[in-house]
Amino acid sequence: MTKTLLLALAAAGLLAHAPARAAEATLTSAVFKEVETRGPDGRATMALKPAARVTPGDQVVYVLTYRNGGEKPAEGVVVTNPLAQNLVYAGPADMQPPLVSIDGRTFGPLASLTKTSAGVATKAVAADVTTLRWTLAQPVPAGGEVRLSFRARLK
């Protein structure tokens, strides 16, 4: 009885504590469409525009922004993004490629992953990817912000 009560109190304490700490850190997800625009000099540049009307085959860019709003550095930051089943991973959109997984458990560069079907192992392809993961090597300082992004294509 006492034990149960203590556990309950501990759980309640954690619950009360978590939102306060989570409020110090924010992770936002946004999605854009990549559009080619030509400047006055005729040079093409890619710009991110709001992804309003998308159709199958379109490529979109997801941008995840982590902001450490706390007063201390955050260490061992790991960001995970499960892919919706109607999306196909289409590669990194910046200089920080994620590790990928085809089963949600084993992560690595895509070329390192194999899938087994009917006893035959073959190289995994982008369409097999189900989850993306970034592990930040450096702590994120207080007030710091990290942007991660990837491309995906609509099935």
Partner: peptide, 19 residues
């Protein structure tokens, strides 16, 4: 699309989800 993250601060591990 919802991303999730985890990190460690002075009070231990924290996890949270994006919008």
């Amino acid at each position: 699309n919802v991303a999730a993250m985890g990190f460690t601060d002075r009070d231990g591990p924290v996890s949270l989800a994006s919008n």
